[in-house]
Amino acid sequence: SSGGSSILDRAVIEHNLLSASKLYNNITFEELGALLEIPAAKAEKIASQMITEGRMNGFIDQIDGIVHFETR
């Protein structure tokens, strides 16, 4: 797709992000992006959206560029 990722790509990214949230206590956007094979800024945006929508527990430290995952 030309304008970003398809629905399937997005679903795969979100699935992998949720998997990462179970493996890590926290991770930088750079590391997360590398893990998900997407730019760091996109990793931040998707993580932020999932947390806001209540689909993933955690919070974002924008100063240090880190996602902190919280286990249920």
Rank of each mutant, 00 (worst) to 15 (best):
L32T: 00
E30C: 06
E37D: 14
E44W: 14
G3N: 12
T52D: 12
G65R: 12
D9Y: 05
A34N: 09
R55P: 01
D61A: 06
R10F: 11
I38C: 04
I51R: 01
N26H: 15
G3K: 09
P39H: 06
D61H: 07
I7G: 11
T28C: 04
L35V: 06
G4Q: 12
V67T: 02
S1T: 13
I63L: 10
I46G: 00
L23E: 07
S6I: 12
T28A: 04
D9N: 07
G65V: 03
L23T: 07
E53A: 09
H68N: 06
S21V: 09
S48G: 09
E37T: 08
D64R: 15
I51S: 01
S1I: 10
K42D: 15
A11R: 07
S48K: 12
S5N: 12
A43F: 03
S2P: 13
V67S: 02
A47R: 00
A43E: 00
E37P: 01
I38M: 06
I63Y: 09
E37N: 15
M56T: 02
F29C: 02
I46A: 04
D64Y: 15
E30H: 08
R72A: 11
E70T: 08
S1L: 07
T71W: 10
I46C: 04
E70S: 07
N25T: 14
E14C: 05
I60F: 03
E31Q: 10
E37F: 09
S19I: 14
L23M: 11
A41L: 08
G4Y: 03
Q62M: 12
Q49H: 06
N25A: 13
G4I: 12
R72N: 12
F29G: 01
F59S: 08
A40V: 07
G58P: 00
E37C: 13
E37W: 07
Y24G: 03
A47L: 10
F29R: 02
G65M: 07
K22A: 07
G3A: 11
D64M: 15
M56W: 04
I66C: 06
H68F: 13
E44Y: 14
T28Y: 03
G58E: 01
I27D: 00
A41G: 09
A47Q: 01
M50S: 01
S19G: 08
Y24P: 01
G4T: 12
R55F: 05
Q49F: 05
I13H: 06
A20E: 02
I46Q: 01
F29Q: 00
G33M: 03
A41I: 09
I7F: 13
G33Q: 03
A11I: 09
I63P: 06
S21G: 06
S19F: 09
I60L: 05
R72H: 11
E30N: 07
L18S: 04
I63K: 13
E31Y: 06
R55C: 05
I66Y: 07
I60N: 01
Q49K: 07
L8V: 12
R10M: 14
T52G: 09
K42W: 15
S5W: 03
H15A: 15
R55H: 05
S5A: 13
E53V: 05
E37M: 14
S5T: 13
H15Y: 12
I60E: 00
L35F: 08
L17F: 05
K22Q: 08
G58A: 12
Q49R: 08
F29Y: 04
Y24F: 11
L17M: 13
D64V: 11
G54M: 05
R72T: 11
D9H: 06
T28M: 02
E37Q: 15
I27Q: 02
K45T: 11
H15G: 10
S2D: 13
N16R: 15
S2L: 08
N26S: 15
G3H: 12
D61W: 06
I66T: 10
I13D: 04
N16A: 14
A43C: 06
Y24R: 06
I7W: 14
N16K: 15
